[in-house]
Computed example of a mutant assay.
Amino acid sequence: MFLSVVIPTYNRLPILQKCLLALEAQDPAAEITGYEVVLVDDGSTDATVSWLRQHSLQLPHLRLIEQEHGGPAQGRNRGVEAARGDVVVFIDSDLVVTPSFLRCHAVALEREWQRRGNRLCFTYGAVINTANFQDPCSEPHKLQDHSFAYFATGNVAIDRQLLEQAGLFDTRFRLYGWEDLELGERLRRLGVGLVRCPEAVGYHWHPALNLEQIPDLIRVERERAKMGLVFYRKHPTRRVRLIIQFTWLHRLLWEALTLGGLLNERSLRPLLAWLIRRGHAGVAMELLRVPLNRLGVRALFAEAKALKDSGQAPSPI
């Protein structure tokens, strides 16, 4: 099989460099006739494009596509349209993979295709979160790295024709969140099975929490709320409500855990700062997730109310 690794990127040059160099260091495999890396730059304003052009000889598998900033859904679609492979591998531009990464996806796909007698499946690799920029692949696998998401595009491989049959990504998802899980809902309706492939490992780098990140984390939660309603309006099911936390149970849960909002990003700031100073940025992030979840759910309900008032959306359960 010929693999096309499709990666959208936006202003992530330092970790993107590690991502691309890791993809150039892939082990050979009998199952793989060749591979390419289709990188879609989503209007980056840093030095991404100039660096890529200056280092093209180090990246022989790379094909660069440039577009104006339109979001990851549009970027992935552009990448698939340009891809030459019969299998598409999706990863994010802050993922650093192991040398056996592509081989493991290829072996698992071939094995499952033969078992099923068709290609109605995709492989889902392991994503290990790390804040270690210098050596991201040294991070051990942790319980919180496990995900129950279906078709999260941080690390999946799928037959290209099957992907095109499902309709690719919905470009209405221009902000952060849900475009991959929405496509997953369409794949699920086609009877496409998820095949876990923990041997295909990618290390997802993101910087350790600092207090300056909090406004951006709040922005992301509000964007997720907007995109969550796009997701729900396409698939108005109980399952999607639960995925995006659009239920009264979630609202009551996060209100209770934050004592009605008394525990928030402002009141927790001294404790977060103390944890970070003590070297426990991961614990601080987990603690911060509680008020962030409340903020996101409240934003979701507010967006839903505005749509309901205009006669466009139902109430949550």
Score class of each variant (00 low, 15 high):
E265Q: 12
V230D: 00
R266F: 02
D216P: 00
R289S: 12
R172G: 14
S56R: 15
T237S: 14
A29H: 05
R76H: 04
R103A: 14
R269G: 01
A152W: 02
L217C: 00
T98D: 11
R119A: 12
A22N: 08
P236R: 05
H141E: 14
I218E: 04
I65H: 14
N264S: 04
K18S: 06
P60W: 09
R239M: 10
Q165Y: 00
L16M: 07
L253K: 15
Q26M: 12
G191T: 02
E66T: 11
R266M: 01
P72D: 00
I276P: 02
W113F: 15
E112T: 09
P316H: 08
E212K: 13
M285Y: 06
L242E: 10
L162V: 06
F169W: 11
L16I: 03
H146Y: 11
L253G: 07
E286L: 14
V201Y: 10
A256W: 12
V290I: 14
P215D: 02
F122V: 05
R222A: 06
L102W: 09
E66A: 02
P291W: 01
L252N: 03
L187H: 00
E164Y: 03
F2A: 08
T153M: 07
F246W: 10
D135Y: 11
G75Q: 01
I214A: 00
V80A: 05
S93I: 08
A22T: 08
G279Y: 04
E199V: 04
C137A: 15
G167A: 06
L300S: 03
F173W: 02
G75L: 02
C137N: 07
A157L: 08
R84T: 11
R116Y: 06
F173H: 07
T45M: 05
R266Q: 03
V40I: 13
Q213V: 10
R116F: 08
R115H: 13
Q17F: 07
L120R: 14
C197M: 05
V192I: 07
D145G: 09
Q213E: 04
V49W: 00
D145K: 06
R115W: 10
L307M: 11
L64T: 07
L52G: 01
R53Q: 13
N155W: 05
T237V: 11
E139L: 11
A284V: 10
A225T: 06
H280Y: 07
L259F: 10
G117M: 12
E31T: 15
D27I: 06
R239Q: 13
R188S: 10
R172W: 04
L307N: 02
N210G: 03
G202K: 08
L39I: 06
A22L: 13
R78L: 15
L162I: 04
P291F: 01
